[in-house]
């Protein structure tokens, strides 16, 4: 599963991620960046383009399969 997080302190609203992956990231009210933390896996290339394009390198991506496996013993995700 693809997961992302954006450091919105770093974000300066260049919106390059929105151009690259418009169904994952969006601009609210002129300047605020919002995004889906769990984009569909089919959008992987778009998300990678978005993360690479960020001028302030604020976007982190990871694949969560292993993480879930580690934690499944303790609780059920979702």
């Amino acid at each position: 599963m693809l997961r992302i997080v954006v450091d919105l302190n770093r974000c300066e609203s260049y919106a390059q991620c929105v151009f690259a992956a418009p169904s994952v990231f969006w601009i609210k009210d002129g300047e605020s960046l919002e995004y889906d933390y769990v984009p569909d896996d089919s959008l992987r290339v778009q998300v990678e383009r978005a993360a690479a394009a960020c001028p302030v390198q604020a976007i982190s991506i990871c694949w969560l399969d292993e993480q879930l496996g580690q934690q499944r013993g303790n609780h059920n995700e979702q």
Partner: peptide
């Protein structure tokens, strides 16, 4: 050209 109005223009 782009967000917020035409976010998908380039893709």
């Amino acid at each position: 050209f782009g967000p917020p109005h035409k976010p998908g223009r380039v893709t």
